[in-house]
Simulated assay, not measured.
Amino acid sequence: MKTEVISIIETELIQTFDELFKWFNIDRELLNYAPSNKGWSIRKILEHISLTNHYLLMLISKGTRKALEKSRKEDYAERLVDYDLDWQRMKIIGQHNSFVWNRPGHMEPRGKRHVADIRQELESQLQQCRILLQKMPHGEGALYKIMMSVNNLGKIDVYHHIYFLVQHAKRHITQMEGVEFEFNLGV
Rank of each mutant, 00 (worst) to 15 (best):
M90I: 12
E121Q: 10
H106E: 15
K135F: 12
V115G: 01
Y159E: 04
K91Y: 12
H160G: 14
Y159I: 07
M90N: 05
M176Q: 04
P109Y: 04
I131F: 09
V81C: 02
Y163M: 03
S98G: 05
T174L: 11
L165E: 12
N102G: 03
L153Q: 08
R72A: 13
G94K: 01
E140Y: 08
L153Y: 06
C129K: 08
G94W: 01
R113Q: 11
R113W: 13
F164T: 04
R79V: 03
K145M: 13
M147E: 15
Q88D: 14
G105V: 13
S98Y: 03
Q88K: 09
L165N: 14
E74L: 11
V166A: 09
V115A: 02
N97M: 11
A77C: 01
R110P: 02
M148D: 05
F99M: 07
A169P: 04
P137M: 15
Y163A: 00
P137A: 15
E78A: 11
H172I: 01
A142E: 13
S149H: 12
I131V: 10
Q167H: 07
Y144K: 08
I146Q: 10
M176I: 06
Q120M: 11
A77H: 08
T174C: 06
M176L: 02
H160F: 07
H96T: 00
N152W: 10
K112I: 00
K73A: 11
Q95L: 12
A169W: 05
H96V: 03
F99W: 13
H168S: 01
K73E: 13
H106N: 15
E78S: 12
N152H: 14
I118S: 08
G139Y: 02
G111C: 07
L165P: 00
Q88P: 00
G141H: 03
M107H: 03
M90P: 06
